[in-house]
Amino acid sequence: MVKKKKQIKKKSKQKNVLNMVEALNQALFQEMNQDEDVVILGEDVGLDGGVFRVSDGLQKKYGKERVIDTPLAESGIVGFSIGMAAAGLKPIAEIQFSGFLYPAVNQIISHASRLRNRTRGAYTCPLVIRAPCGGGIRALEHHSESMENIFIHTPGIKVVMPSTPSDAKGLLISAIRDPDPVIFYEPKRVYRSIKEDIPKESYEIPLGKARISREGTDVSILTWGSVVKDCNEVADSLKEKVSVEVIDLRTLKPLDIETVIESVKKTGRVVIVHEAPKTSGFGAELIALINEKALLDLQAPVIRVTGFDTIFPLYKLEKHYMPNHDRIMKGINDVLNY
């Protein structure tokens, strides 16, 4: 008996150091294990384990019926998932790259987002659409964009974008258990670039809650996705001179407005950093909300450091498109020296 206890203790001390791909994979295993209605579908998700290996090993364990290699048709995958969700399953659809989500936009906007409302709550669509997103990995054309605002703008949809392995696991588990459709963006620049020791057992990180990634008092950075890492690095490099608070929004819809406004009231200076294009990007909405709720607390106009209103360049120029350290640094300087 005593011996057994010791073993358990030893086991729980075992490290679970994972990158984001592995963390997501662990989340999928645990959710498929605990709920028979969870199914995974998409292009190359089964036999091949997904082109990024997020669903690696799942078909072998749970079979072809629950880990489904579909024909190559994005609208088909999402429309099919809507039917599955309405029938009582909890589908997790993978769209291989977020740049290939567009054929499915009609299914998402016209159906997934509306089914609950149209039927006054009788039919629902508890569906997760996973999509690797963002630039910075020298990818092929159409493989680098950040178009999350399309879905943030869509009533009835929730939008999540983790930036660490730990958040990726907990947020994916919450998204799968959520009763509404969730677009789950995975910044592929982070897929293998960060490793963390995360809890091995299943855990939820609630949707709609931001994470204060660095605490600070002079300036607030509001950010999400792959550039959270860059913001943290810039904040750390300035530590001696400026106290930078970095807020990783994690869930873009519903937004954690309380954490945002609290930080704005504390620092009075805000820089918003996102990969997506500037015009009508989510940064613009954040500024509008700050104006509505904390205008008089601001010491300077809010600065945006974002992708440009251009087509995402091929990789020789992508480092200039991305909100890199120099651009983030300039944003902080501008808001401090206003």
Binding site: G79, S81, I82, G83, M84, A87, S110, T119, Y123
Partner: peptide, 29 residues
């Protein structure tokens, strides 16, 4: 748009052809 239990139907779909995929996914479920 509500469907009384037992009628076993989806509400009407206006975007042309989009409902056919729901039937297929539902059948899978």
């Amino acid at each position: 748009n509500q469907i009384t239990p037992g009628v076993n139907a989806f509400p009407i779909a206006v975007p042309v052809g989009s409902q056919t995929l729901h039937a297929v996914g539902f059948a899978y479920g």
